[in-house]
């Protein structure tokens, strides 16, 4: 769910939200870029690409289908670097698929990446714990709380930018309650798999294989 600048530009508050989003994303991206060194660029880029490809998969939910967002997973893997990664992925979504607009890019990125960073600080330790049984729980809460927080930020932006959007804001949030459930199950399973297949390797270090093989 991405907002478009045409929706938010009706009122001064909406324009304020757009500006706030742009400033927040600028700051977050600056921090994220500082946290990433040149050798990590390909890894982060591939996470962006996975995010983009996965967002095109439709998953059945009752009579309808949803698409995964996975910003919680991106947060768990990348920390602050989630900002540049999501910025790039959302730019591609705006330009190649038509999700969201160029001016709303700042707000949309902030709404996705801020929960991702929060999730990193809250659940990253838990997702790397020695007890296997917690991995799924960590992934589930990370995935579902990240998407719920994003939905909350988007609904709040709608709500702030005009009273007439109240109903739309509520609808967006309620719909994401169901999405969060599925997102949580998927991210939980992903974390379980990642921990089982490569338990020793944290994601954002310089490639280990590289140092071994040189």
């Amino acid at each position: 769910m991405h907002l478009h600048e045409a929706v938010l530009s009706d009122s001064p508050q909406g324009i304020g939200v757009l500006c706030l989003g742009a400033v927040g994303t600028l700051a977050g991206t600056a921090l994220g870029l500082r946290a990433m060194d040149h050798e990590q660029v390909p890894r982060v880029a591939l996470v962006s690409a996975v995010f983009f490809v996965v967002s095109l998969i439709h998953i059945p939910l009752g009579v309808t289908s949803i698409h995964l967002t996975l910003n919680g997973l991106v947060g768990l893997l990348l920390g602050w670097t989630a900002f540049p990664a999501l910025l790039v992925a959302l730019l591609l979504q705006a330009v190649l698929v038509g999700h969201g607009g160029l001016l709303a890019l700042g707000f949309n990125t902030l709404a996705m990446a801020l929960p991702a960073v929060a999730v990193f600080y809250l659940f990253q330790r838990m997702s790397e714990s020695k007890h296997r049984s917690i991995h799924f729980f960590a992934g589930f809460t990370a995935g579902s709380s990240a998407i719920l927080s994003s939905a909350f930020l988007i609904s709040a932006a709608l709500w702030v930018s005009g009273e007439s959007f109240e109903l739309a804001a509520k609808a967006v949030f309620l719909f994401h309650l169901a999405v969060a459930m599925i997102e949580g199950l998927v991210v939980g399973s992903t974390v379980v798999l990642l921990r089982q297949v490569c338990p020793e390797r944290p994601f954002l270090t310089t490639p280990q294989g590289l140092q071994e093989r040189m």
């Binding site: 390909p42 890894r43 880029a45 591939l46 996470v47 690409a49 996975v50 490809v53 996965v54 998969i57 998953i59 059945p60 995964l68 996975l70 997973l73 893997l77 599925i182 199950l185 998927v186 991210v187 939980g188 399973s189 992903t190 974390v191 379980v192 798999l193 990642l194 297949v197 490569c198 994601f203 490639p207 294989g209 590289l210």
Partner: peptide, 21 residues
């Protein structure tokens, strides 16, 4: 279904990490 999609995403990530390296 949801677990399989989770593993699918995980495999995509693992393969792309190797590719990135």
């Amino acid at each position: 279904t949801y677990r399989s999609f989770g593993y699918l995403v995980g495999m995509l990530l693992l393969r792309s990490v190797d590719r990135a390296d």
